[in-house]
Write a protein that binds this DNA or RNA. Structure first.
Lengths: 232, 232
DNA sequence: AGATATATAGCGAGCGCTCGCTCGTTTTTT
DNA sequence: AAAAAACGAGCGAGCGCTCGCTATATATCT
């Protein structure tokens, strides 16, 4: 898994696949019984929500706008969620779910520290590239979440940072990285990863693609941690 | 200027001083004539706005909440701004103003590249520490700004990144830093600087103070740019 | 100095409007 | 024809904002 193309073939993160998981997780609230119909309409709802919310904020997006743009009536929308807040939690929940799915696989947890670190960085960039609007949504609306949502976001954030910290700590113990505080190092790397989706437009304007960003980031992080040069 | 204490003595960024500048910039909209009264009440209004907006978002903060918490009536509020959007632009404008004030002084623009880079990093951290809630507000509400506000935010963002890029480019030319793309390097450093105020709580919980963060960041950035060790 | 007049600051009920959400009805599917 | 899904007018609550009014500070006149 060493390019964005390979990543896309390994993980199915299509709107359909994502909505199928959301349907699984919210079977009790979603009142539409036919899975095929439910997945299709969930896709339209969430696609529209992400577009409108990322343009002017979730709170400023009215359900009438959402109804009009998605082509479903007000009543139909309420067959898929029981409150606007639930819609928000559906999207956030799927973001957390996808993170777990992508960052918990052998490539990331085994092998040399250099490769584990590279895999962690690459997968994070590729995942946030593939699900860009979802991550922007989660990041921007985080403050407005209900307590349940905020706790979920913080936990997920700390989990990802913990993965980084563990790899760095292992690397220091193995003598691959210069001795330093692994928690602080992880804390500094995390925002660089987030920048890829928070400021996506800036990188697009400069012609930087996902693989280019991964290369630059791996290089920078390597230098920062004082890693010995990669074996040719 | 080599500590947060020294920074606070060099720059007056008290609520009173900031509001006095806001009053200057919005003389035409603010209908209260006595400067003393206006500055005092602007302080109450903005302090309350930052508190409420950073808790639940600016859009979700009603002017009735603001009125109740600040102790001014609805009518009195409208003597200080002519629309809720103007209130938002007042705060954003002062953030941009303060950035210019702090990052455009001899320390930052003269001397060796190592020192210029250190000064730039330190001042950014100290400024965002001193005006924490203002910066969090600007960052979180940026997407909801009117076009005027968004353009201001983007311009200010790019200006700061440009300052970083220039120092790095000078350093590469002088042989102090390893040859690399200064634009990409600056793009990766910026989010680390922003993390200080966006995730302020995380660092507080871990007992990291402004000077500690500056030290860690200068160290990390130095390694990342491949700077030669500092002269003792 | 005291009385009067004028300007300034603050007040808060109420306006028009949009919001999230409901529910009786209609359309589509089985 | 029964069940499932979609419809959309309408409800009450809460929004940004206004405006006729009161209270207080300042200026002017005897």
């Amino acid at each position: 898994m060493d390019s964005y193309r390979a990543f896309q073939q390994e993980f199915d993160l299509s709107m359909e696949a994502l909505c199928r998981r959301i349907l699984d997780r919210h079977q009790t609230t979603i009142r539409v019984r036919k899975a095929e119909t439910a997945v299709a309409n969930l896709g339209r709802i969430i696609d529209t929500t992400l577009t409108l919310a990322n343009r002017k904020g979730f709170h400023s997006t009215s359900l009438r706008d959402l109804s009009e743009q998605s082509g479903l009536s007000m009543g139909a929308l309420y067959s898929y969620f029981d409150s606007k807040d639930t819609l928000l939690l559906m999207i956030l929940g799927q973001v957390v779910d996808a993170i777990q799915q992508v960052l918990t696989t052998p490539d990331v947890t085994t092998g040399g520290v250099e490769n584990r670190l590279r895999a962690l960085i690459a997968r994070h960039v590729y995942l946030t590239e593939r699900m860009g609007p979802w991550f922007v949504f989660a990041f921007m609306e985080a403050k407005a979440f209900s307590k349940q949502g905020r706790d979920m976001a913080i936990e997920s954030e700390l989990w990802t940072e913990g993965q980084l910290r563990d790899v760095i700590a292992d690397g220091i113990a193995a003598g691959a990285f210069r001795p330093q505080d692994p928690t602080m190092a992880a804390a500094l790397i995390k925002p660089m990863l987030q920048d890829w989706y928070v400021k996506r437009g800036k990188y697009r304007r400069r012609g930087v693609d996902p693989d280019g960003f991964v290369a630059a980031l791996v290089q920078a992080v390597g230098a920062m941690l004082g890693s010995s040069p990669q074996p040719a």
